[in-house]
Amino acid sequence: MTKKFFSYALLALALALGFSANAQDRWSKERINDWYAKQPWMAGANYVPASAINQLEMWQEASFDPERIDRELGWAEDLGFNTMRVFLHHMLWEQDQKGFIKRINKYLKIADKHGIRTMFVLLDDVWHPYPNLGKQPAPLKGVHNSGWVQSPGRNILERPDRWDELEGYVKGILKHYANDKRVVFWDLYNEPGNTNGNSYGGGGKKIELPNKRKYSLGLLKKVYKWAREVNPSQPLSIDVWTSVGKKIEQMSAIDRFAYENSDVINFHCYSSAATTEKTIKELSKSGRPLVCTEYMARPHGDGTFQNVMPVLKKYNVVAYNWGFVAGKSQTNYPWSSWQKPFENEPKLWFHDIFRENGEPYKQAEVDFIKRTTGKQTL
């Protein structure tokens, strides 16, 4: 067998398996750990300004609010936060690529001014499956995250023949910021396969795609391939989100794919300090740095900053809590508010740190965060 024939055979096999000839492998353990060793301990929040109910309202030209973003990221800087996780949306790219990039650039300039690097999230399977551009709905009274939307949503997810429509968006964003030092990580797909069964008054499954996880895994594999073909200078990751406290061998197929293909292991853990530590120890078997992209639901196993944040710092895990300012997203209300909306603000907030005017929900909590990040000493 000639070398030329052997090369053609390998190319044909790669194409048959769905991999491009120029796709890159994930970073080696040596490379990612060397990169991570050069970073400071990172802490921040999942960020949407108080004026936006979802990703679309945050980024669309008519509602983009750089003045508020500047003010709120100033509060983040004051806490000692040095990174934020921020969601994008494919419809914004389709609507106005140049304008979208212009607004992302404006956001990154503001964040950089405050010493904050960003983890961008490209796709999301959580909350409403039918996103629409234009004016977004008002929040439902007393309901947690009542207007967040999925990307791409059911109309594309249930049509594998339409998945390639997303390639331009995924590659376009990645290529544009592939060497931008203000971008620290990429999160390719938030909670792929989430069926949102507790949302929409308990009726999430009635409007969700049946057998959603099968479709999400198929799309996820395509998105991952496209991202590796771009090969940005920042680490790539996918959420491990259904395996809190579980052994690696007990992972779902989606979590297993995320675990086996991410440069850094990106996970969610809305639970107690003990469960968080247990999850960290299990995922550390990967030999890779860990990034906790969602934590801190105060009533869940007493999952407060005071209990969980020190565990993340102890193990040098990047810490992104959910929620920053209690605005139109209303994530200070609990998930259960979908079943029974609140008439008044809950006494114990679920997420979030500040009110819209910058007043802390709990001053003692803010002081604790500052001490943990090193922004404030005793």
Rank of each mutant, 00 (worst) to 15 (best):
K221M: 14
N307R: 04
P341D: 05
W349H: 10
N46S: 09
P192I: 07
L88F: 15
D161C: 08
T279A: 11
S336V: 04
N145A: 14
S252I: 06
A43E: 05
I156V: 15
L13Q: 05
F87K: 02
N261Q: 11
K225A: 14
L290Q: 01
N105H: 09
R355K: 08
S233L: 13
K212W: 06
K98G: 06
W27R: 11
Y200E: 08
W186G: 05
V86W: 03
T331H: 00
F5I: 15
F6A: 15
G245P: 09
A227L: 07
T275G: 00
K206R: 14
V230H: 03
M42R: 15
L157D: 05
E294P: 11
I104G: 02
E282Y: 07
S243T: 10
Y320R: 01
Q136M: 02
D180T: 06
Y259S: 01
I69W: 02
L122A: 02
K205W: 07
V240M: 02
T372W: 08
W322P: 02
S336H: 09
G204P: 01
I156T: 15
L312T: 01
K181H: 14
E165Y: 07
A37V: 03
P334Q: 00
L108A: 03
S243Q: 04
G287S: 08
S237C: 09
I101D: 00
L17N: 13
T279I: 08
K102C: 10
P192V: 09
N198A: 10
I254M: 02
P232G: 05
E158M: 12
Q136W: 02
I265W: 10
C292W: 01
K221A: 10
R26I: 13
K370P: 00
E191H: 06
S286N: 04
R103Y: 10
G374S: 10
W93F: 07
R31F: 06
V264S: 01
H128V: 03
Q250M: 07
S271Q: 05
R256W: 09
M58W: 12
A21P: 11
Q60L: 04
V244R: 07
L378A: 12
A16D: 04
V325F: 01
W241R: 01
M91C: 08
F5G: 07
P49Y: 09
H351I: 06
T242N: 07
K370F: 09
Y177G: 11
L290C: 06
I116M: 04
L13K: 06
K328P: 00
S199I: 11
W127S: 08
F100D: 03
F120N: 01
F6G: 02
H144N: 13
A326C: 11
V244Y: 02
Q306R: 12
I104F: 10
R228A: 07
R298D: 11
S336K: 12
G197D: 08
L209M: 12
G142F: 03
P139H: 03
S216D: 15
F120Y: 15
G172E: 15
D302V: 14
Y36R: 14
D65Y: 12
F257E: 12
A319F: 09
A16L: 15
H351S: 11
N332D: 08
S286L: 07
I32K: 05
S51M: 04
N194P: 04
N155F: 12
Q95N: 14
Q60T: 06
L348R: 05
A9N: 09
Q24T: 13
P160M: 13
I207F: 06
N46C: 15
